[in-house]
Amino acid sequence: MLSRLVPTLLFGLALLCPTAWAGISDAEAMNLSGMQRMLSQRIAKSYLMIGAEVRSEVAIKQLDQSVARFESNFIALSEYAPTPQISAALMTASDTWQVYRELALTRPNREQSVRLLQLSDQLLAQSEQVVQLIERHTGSRSAHLVNLSGRQRMLSQRIAKLYLAVSWRLPISGLEEELLKVTEEFEVALQVLLAARQNTPQTREALHKVEAQWRFARAGFRLSSDSRYVPTIITTTSETLLWQMDGLTSAYEKIMQQDA
């Protein structure tokens, strides 16, 4: 089903994406490379949603769009790559991506989910390396905010992915501990962003909205302590967090552009 639909969708969206046509700036590269981290987790989250029958129709669309966007981002970043180290890191991630994409587009089941989550973590680590290399290359003081805000996008999807894996009771050790760890990472990073001196009145207001949404999401995590899982609520609130943080990342990208 998915394997037949996505190649056509992927090809069309990749052609329509502006980043696949034109060269991108350092600030745009920071944003897109950070987005690759998020997509590595969003694809796995969508796969688990389909397998666990949690808003399956929505998840199929998310999976299709995420695969297509990862491809178009990769094209743009490959054309941008200003150093041999960044090019090499992109190619390493590409090797994992080919295997991950093929598995992600198969019909979800519990057995394959274990391998899929391993690949999603591997691709995340490789994408993180690309982000770090680009940040060091730019030398921009504001690049760290684009990086950190973009990482919050990833954490919103990683949290949802891990929550689904726990609630679906996948046979992977340490899932609950990792879920606790990433929720704390999100909290700490949110406080760092709130304290950033580069914030404008608009970014402060947006961050306070994220903070309110985050408090609501954490209430759902507490419900799972007695095995009363609420995956539909968590996937919905994490989606709101994703788009809130995506808007903030774009705002920090503009600040970085102004500092250039």
Rank of each mutant, 00 (worst) to 15 (best):
L116R: 02
S66Y: 04
R69E: 13
L105F: 11
L77W: 02
F74M: 13
L117T: 03
Q126I: 08
Q112G: 15
A81C: 04
S127H: 08
S113Q: 03
M35T: 14
Q98C: 10
A59R: 00
L116D: 01
A44C: 11
V54W: 01
A125H: 12
L124R: 00
N109S: 11
S94F: 14
L119C: 03
S113A: 12
A104C: 06
Q122R: 15
M35S: 13
R55L: 14
R55V: 05
R37N: 10
V99M: 10
L124A: 02
S127N: 14
S120L: 04
Q98S: 14
A44N: 01
D95L: 13
S66A: 15
Q122P: 04
R42N: 03
R37V: 08
S78I: 05
M35G: 15
A81H: 00
E102I: 11
Q36W: 11
A125M: 10
I75L: 14
E111G: 12
R55C: 14
D121A: 15
S113H: 03
T83C: 07
N109M: 05
A52H: 07
K61Q: 12
R37Y: 10
I43M: 10
A52D: 02
D95H: 13
L77G: 01
L105D: 06
D95T: 15
S113M: 08
A104T: 07
L90G: 01
L48D: 01
Q65T: 11
Q65P: 07
K61C: 09
E102S: 15
E102Y: 14
V58D: 15
E53N: 11
Y100D: 11
S127Y: 07
R115V: 12
L39S: 09
S56Q: 05
A93R: 02
N73Q: 14
A52C: 06
S87I: 03
M38A: 07
S78P: 06
L63F: 04
A76I: 03
R101Q: 14
Y47R: 04
A44E: 05
P108A: 01
S78L: 03
Q112P: 07
K45V: 02
M38V: 12
L63K: 05
E79Y: 10
P84G: 02
L48K: 00
E53F: 05
R101F: 10
R55W: 05
